[in-house]
Each structure stands twice: as structure tokens, then as C-alpha cells.
Write a protein that binds this DNA or RNA. Structure first.
Lengths: 143, 143
DNA sequence: GTACGTGCAAAATGTTTGCATCATT
DNA sequence: AATGATGCAAACATTTTGCACGTAC
């Protein structure tokens, strides 16, 4: 669908076929891919594409707020085109990142008390951008 | 202090001077240093030390559960010798990681409802190891 | 037409590995 | 004495950069 074009224009991003393909692949993916995984997903359907462009594009999209870089512990970045507040489960074995279903996640996030966040801002002299909750877990082998 | 030796022995870790120096520097640091920062902190007081040893040691300490690797978004790992439950503020500008004062952090973490966590375990078929709350923030320039 | 995006290859950065030597147990 | 840790340098993986060319506006 072509509302990507309008979305890009609203954010003053040039609508190149590479950028659109990268963004749409990330948006439609549920796997929070790495830059390289994304490159491999998009490359077959795009006649000219280099990995450097994937990095440049992801950078531009982050800058524009359309994409988020997710924190990882293995030195290799993962990306998410869903910038709404939602929780992640990080598999300690594989490094894979999965979304927690909206209705469960919001039950956790909604109970974070705003006044405590305000106190943290005051105590640490920062402006909170957002709170990211990550659940570290292993695949359950007991069931 | 030398309880590091006993701590290591309890975890079946060899007590080399490099390992002890690295661990103690990390434990006494409040800056959640990168491997290289740690190397620079420890090197001057240790006659033989290489960066590879810092990586190997941090790996062994993580394995033993004495140290934790923190998630970051810039592909460069940071470490923490405080493995108790506590919150981090990540500076979006510098990548720096700061601890949230214990009494404030526990006000957030203690309100995470256990039954929701149990539901997440069931729904996603995982065993939760721990919940990590990261606050993304900027240095407050309005004050 | 101009400004910006792209591909490619090279460089920079962060981390891991192989191997001979050395230290701890 | 045996096992495992160390230093060093080389390999590796991920990300960034410089530059000539191409494309969107």
C-alpha cells in the first residue's frame, strides 16, 4: 500500500524505492530483524540495494521517529517499526525479541505510577522520553 | 578487600590478579563501563593486562552470575557488577547508564503484578528470568 | 538543476580466537 | 604436575564513511 509515501512526505523523507521497501518490510515483520536480516528480506525484491543503504535508511527512520532501535546485549542492533508502547520478551538463549500481546503488556505498563517517574526526573535531573520494559526469559522446557 | 578471593572460590573461578582487579574495579564503579573503559581503569595498576583478558573475564563473571551485561543500542556492551534488581536510566544522547536510587526504583518494580507476569509466561511459553526496566531519557535542559 | 540518496569498497569499531607462555590450584 | 588463564596478534562481525554516480523534488 502506498500510504508509506504520504507518511514519508509528512516526515520530510525522500521516497526512494529502497527506503520504502525497507520500511514496509520492517513494518510487516514480527521478528525485530537485524540490519542484515532486513537486507536479506528486502534484497530479492529490489533490484539495487546495498547493506549500507539499509543502515542509512534505518538511521534516518529512527531520526524521524518512525522506527526504534532496540537495546540488545550481543552487540548487534535490532529494529522495530512499531513505536507504540509495548513490552518485549528477550530470549536469553537466542537473543530473539518477541512482542508481549498488547492486552497483557498494558496491564504492566499502565500500573507504572506517573508520580514516581516524575520523582525520578527530579532526582536525576533528566527528561524521561519513555520507559522500556524488557522481560528476560528462556524458552520453557518444563512443559 | 580480599573477600573477592572467597567470592571467586565459591563460584569456582580462579583467583588471578587480573580477574580480581577487573571485578573490583567494576564493583566499585558507578558508571557501568564498557570493556575498554574498564581496561583503561584497571591497566595502570596492573602490570600485565590485555583487553582480551578483560573480555574473557567479564564473560566468565557473567557466566558465574557475578556480573551482568546491560542491553544497549549502540552495539557496544556495558557491564554492571550489581546484580540486584534495580532500574537504569539510559541517556539518549551519550549512551551513559545511571542507576535509579533504590527507594525510587523499587516503588516502580514492586508494583509489577506477579499474576500478569505468570500470564505472560503461559501465553508466550517462556520462563521469566527477570524484568528489566530501562528509562530512556535526555539530560534536562529546562532547569 | 540541486540536494540528497545510493552502491561499492575501504575503514573504523567492538569482540573473539589460536597459540605459546605463565600462574593457580 | 595439570589445568586453566594470559598476552599478543590476527580474525571476525557489525557499523560507518568517502566518493562517484543516480534519482527525487
Amino acid at each position: 500500500m502506498s500510504c508509506t509515501r504520504e507518511l514519508f512526505q509528512r516526515h520530510h523523507l525522500r521516497c526512494t524505492k529502497q527506503r520504502m521497501a525497507i520500511y514496509e518490510a520492517l513494518r510487516d515483520s514480527h521478528s525485530h530483524p537485524t540490519a542484515e536480516a532486513l537486507f536479506n528480506m528486502v534484497k530479492p525484491n529490489t533490484d539495487r540495494l546495498s547493506l549500507a543503504t539499509v543502515y542509512n535508511t534505518l538511521d534516518a527512520l529512527c531520526e524521524a521517529g518512525l522506527v526504534r532501535k532496540l537495546p540488545t546485549t550481543n552487540g548487534c542492533c535490532r529494529f522495530d517499526a512499531d513505536t507504540s508502547h509495548h513490552l518485549h520478551v528477550r530470549c536469553l538463549e537466542s537473543g530473539e525479541i518477541m512482542d508481549v500481546p498488547e492486552e497483557l503488556g498494558s496491564q504492566l505498563v499502565d500500573r507504572l505510577p506517573a508520580e514516581v517517574l516524575a520523582q525520578i526526573e527530579k532526582a536525576m535531573n533528566v527528561k524521561i522520553d519513555r520507559v522500556q520494559v524488557q522481560i528476560m526469559a528462556r524458552t520453557d522446557t518444563t512443559r
